[in-house]
Design a binder for these strands. Structure first.
Length: 848
RNA sequence: GCCGGUGUGGCGGAAUGGUAGACGCAGCGGAUUCAAAAUCCGCCGGGGCAACCCCCCGUAAGAGUUCGAGUCUCUUCACCGGCACCA
């Protein structure tokens, strides 16, 4: 009799899997494949519980699918480019490559003891020359296909990271990583033409049935499709080459309610006026400044400036509207100009009220008459309203119908055309950083922008760079950027921008199918392994990473790098919840919060001083709050199986799970109990016992439930069933043979979650080979059916008793038994039941 | 503001329209032990009752559909997430 020793068991079985190459994926054309992928990590140097949960979920799927006979691909790599490596170099010297490589080594050393069934032979880092070189090849092909272009653009400039950010990387006006207030600058930048795919990226969402509806909705909102009318308003007096002002509207049905025309301070006409008139320039400067401050955004005050210009109303001959410059109009949405319809748009209403402009209603609620408005009347588009200033369609119609009618009418009259617009903008990928994939082009004074030749790839990052000053080290490198033009051979300058790191993660899933290929993706491998059957990661990537990847897959199809079937690279997506922990806080002499690590706290007091701590409700583990538990410590204390078991139990995978010391303790206690049961069974004989049939029946029930649980991502429910079965096993008076069979099955069912313990038990009780390679147990349908069923008896829908009857007893017989039941007799009190409902095999309800 | 989601014991959470609270944590009682650790067994939503018989209440609140509602419909409230001068 010995004790459960995770440390011994886990090292042993990890070595066994390695030796037998259990998790090495090989292309086997005859076998059905299954590709499981978890979002690869940034090599920060430490794994955290979030990684443990994410990768354990993927591992459960991978191991389960393998047992079900699939040829499983379950790779791992590193999202290795990016700012933190450069920041580290700036702060403490050293080189980003060195820092990154060391982190990868350290993190891998923490990951391997977790026992995840990863094919490490496919490992790569995005900072490998091999990887980014192929990425450059992809880029060149995309450039040739017209999917990449350069333009001058007002960009979001992060003054702390000294780099450009994509719109998506600006959160509340601040850089997503640095948190610094973002500035606007005009720079020539590289862009991916993701907007070419707006319609397709939107409509294809419908086909992603195994994605969370939430994620699909978030992407649809992000793409932001709208249907409207684009039309020109003619200036009464042309100015600086402007004869008309183009306006986009989604509510052309409200055209008769227009009371002014508004343009953005950045609109070309405003800029033209700015040059001539100091008052306009002053206003525009104020409006631009105001729009970026947090205060202006919160108060949302509408500022306007009447230019004195006027435009003709296209539907009202002889009538004109004033042209205002307004701070709330965005230059880069629509045409940067609007017509204001204050009666039916709250912003326009506020604006018109402030500046005394008319507010004529276009429609009123059915059954009401025109009356002065105190706020804009904006009913849902599908609600019918009565048009009092309509010009197309019925007098009473829905907004939707009116918009369609208005577009048709305007097109007929030649005063505009229906257009579809998207909020999604092109993806700016230029970054003025060192630690990223160099953009493989050359600027030649004679030939212009020239693509690097593929045989010259990769364009390597130079090693000898310094980080002692802000800005782009590539740009100030003494020699790197000086090169010859691939076309004319003359002196030229290399592009010093590198790619946004989201590019790296937009195709890594495809590279895993052929990580060492001489081309970005080997077609036969991609054809076999793609698409990812199950992708697992955090909800925080719902928009950016997933949208970019969907675009990249399409771009790779267009450039011949992926088969046409790979447009949606992630067939199923699962977004897992976070790992949270209570926060322990005390206050220092100044009343500032001081946080404490969980291991320094016991029974609500600091171990060191005995001072009582304040317990703040659970939140995402974060270093700054010190509410973190290091997986390395947990593995050292309890073993990987305990950590794996615990992060899967307690909460449904999509929800947050709270890490508690007592929960981890309980998980470990349970695994030790299972081990003990196996150890006892191993020493028992092979005899029979009175509980054999019951135990085997319970075993089949458990196989069924656990299988369904895993299939449906109900890992917590599967684990609950395993707990229950362990309890049954412990109490069972079955003989040795049945106990051993039950425990071998238990080992198999636990193997996806606690693979090391499972191997140990499997081996101990005479299982053949590795449990990791054994086929999944199948529940015997005959064993699931009971000979007798217990039917609850309800009286008026409330449970009052139960009867146990043979499974196939007829309804009339059941009715007779029910009416004879004591509780029913009591409820009836001599009267006859109004109704008797028998749901065979389920329940009986007596209505009195 | 708009869109979406979630509300179940002290806590995390179970429950194809069919016995609400599986399983785990915490708590309580007991066995074992000289004692402890470890382990094992039992109890564990609220109220009534001498009572583990039984009765009443109970899944955020209110209404509805149904023989039967945590589950479906409507209204309200709270919390969480996403988007947000997007014309």
């Amino acid at each position: 009799m010995s004790r459960y020793s995770a440390a011994e068991i886990e090292a042993k079985w990890q070595a066994a899997w390695d030796t037998s190459g259990t998790f090495r994926a090989a292309h086997r054309p005859g076998q059905k494949k299954y590709y499981v992928l978890e979002m690869f990590p940034y090599p920060s140097g430490r794994i955290h519980m979030g990684h443990v949960r994410n990768y354990t979920m993927g591992d459960v799927v991978a191991r389960y699918k393998k047992a079900r006979g699939f040829n499983v691909l379950h790779p791992m790599g590193w999202d290795a480019f990016g700012m933190p490596a450069e920041n580290a170099a700036m702060q403490s010297g050293g080189h980003p490559a060195q820092w990154t490589r060391a982190n990868i080594a350290e993190m891998k050393a923490q990951m391997r003891p977790m026992g995840w069934s990863l094919d490490w032979s496919r490992e790569f880092a995005t900072c490998d020359e091999d990887y980014y070189g192929q990425q450059q090849a992809l880029f060149l092909d995309m450039l040739e296909a017209g999917l990449v272009y350069r333009k001058a653009a007002v960009v979001n400039w992060d003054p702390v990271d000294m780099t450009v950010l994509a719109n998506e990387q600006v959160i509340d006006g601040k850089g997503w990583r640095s948190g610094a207030e973002v500035e606007r600058r005009e720079l020539v930048q590289w862009f991916f033409r993701i907007s070419d795919y707006s319609e397709e990226l939107l409509s294809a969402l419908d086909g992603l049935e195994d994605w969370p509806a939430k994620v699909r909705l978030m992407q649809a909102n992000w793409i932001g499709k709208s249907r409207g009318l684009q039309m020109g308003f003619a200036l009464t007096a042309p100015l600086a080459g402007h004869e008309t002002i183009e306006v986009y509207t989604t509510r052309p049905d409200t055209l008769m309610g227009a009371s002014f025309l508004g343009i953005s301070p950045d609109h070309p006409l405003a800029r033209a006026l700015e040059g001539d008139r100091a008052d306009v320039a002053a206003f525009c400067a104020q409006a631009r400044h105001g729009a970026t401050t947090a205060e202006a955004l919160e108060t949302g005050e509408k500022l306007g400036f009447d230019t004195g210009l006027r435009v003709a109303h296209p539907l009202k001959p002889g009538e004109t509207l004033p042209v205002w410059i307004a701070n709330f109009i965005l230059v880069d949405y629509g045409t940067g100009a609007i017509f204001g319809c204050p009666a039916h748009d709250q912003r326009d209403f506020e604006f018109a009220s402030k500046y005394g402009l008319p507010i004529p209603p276009v429609f009123v609620a059915e059954g009401t008459d025109e009356a002065p408005l105190r706020e804009a009347y904006v009913p849902p588009k599908e609600q019918p309203v009565r048009y009092i200033r309509g010009f197309a369609g019925e007098a009473v119609q829905t907004g939707e119908a009116a918009v369609a009618a208005a577009i048709a009418e305007c097109e007929k009259r030649g005063i505009g055309k229906g257009v579809t617009r998207f909020r999604l903008r092109d993806w700016g990928l230029s970054r003025q950083r060192y630690w990223g994939c160099p953009i493989p082009v050359v600027h030649c004074p004679a030939c212009g922008v020239v693509a690097e030749k593929k045989e010259n790839l990769p364009v390597r990052l130079p090693d000898d760079v310094t980080f002692d000053q802000p800005g782009n080290p590539l740009d100030r490198h003494p020699t790197w950027k000086h090169c010859t033009c691939p076309d004319c051979g003359g002196a030229a300058r290399r592009e010093t921008d590198t790619m946004d790191t989201f590019v790296d993660s937009s195709w890594y899933y495809a590279r895993f199918t052929s990580p060492h290929a001489e081309v970005p993706v080997a077609q036969d491998e991609a054809a076999y392994w793609m698409n990812v059957d199950q992708y697992i990661g955090g909800i925080e990537h719902a928009i950016l990473h997933l949208l970019y990847s969907r675009f990249f897959a399409r771009a790779m199809i267009r450039t011949g790098h992926l088969p046409a079937t790979c447009a949606e690279p992630f067939a199923a997506l699962f977004t897992q919840g976070m790992v949270t922990h209570e926060i322990y806080r005390t206050r220092d002499a100044q009343g500032r919060p001081v946080y404490h690590f969980p291991e320094d706290v016991a029974d609500g007091r600091l171990k060191a001083t005995g001072e009582a701590v304040e317990v703040v409700p659970s939140a995402k583990m974060s270093k700054s709050k010190k509410n973190v538990v290091d997986p390395v410590n947990i593995v050292a204390q309890y073993g990987a199986d305990t950590a794996r078991w615990f992060v899967l139990s307690d909460s449904p995978p999509e929800r947050d799970v709270e890490w508690t010391a007592s929960g981890a303790e309980a998980a470990h206690r349970h695994l030790a109990r299972v081990w003990r049961l196996a150890d006892e069974a191993a020493q028992a004989g092979d005899g029979t016992g009175p509980g054999d049939a019951d135990l085997i029946r319970a075993m089949h029930r458990t196989i069924e439930d656990v299988t369904l649980g895993i299939e449906s991502f109900g890992f917590n429910a599967a684990i609950a069933r395993l707990y229950a079965f362990t309890g049954t096993l412990a109490k069972s008076d079955a003989g040795g043979a049945a106990r051993k069979a039950a425990l071998r099955t238990l080992a198999q069912l636990m193997a996806p979650m606690t693979p090391h313990l499972a191997e140990e038990i499997w081996h101990l009780l005479g299982g053949l080979g590795l449990v990791a390679e054994a086929p999944w147990p199948v529940a015997d349908a005959a064993m699931l059916a009971r000979d007798e069923v217990t039917l609850p008896i309800q009286v008026n829908g409330k449970r009052r008793g139960e009867i146990t009857v043979p499974r196939d007893l007829g309804t009339t017989d059941i009715e007779a038994l029910v009416l004879a039941d004591d509780a029913v007799q009591r409820a009836l009190a001599g009267a006859a039941p109004k109704k008797l409902i028998v749901v065979p095999g389920r329940i009986v309800n007596v209505v009195v």
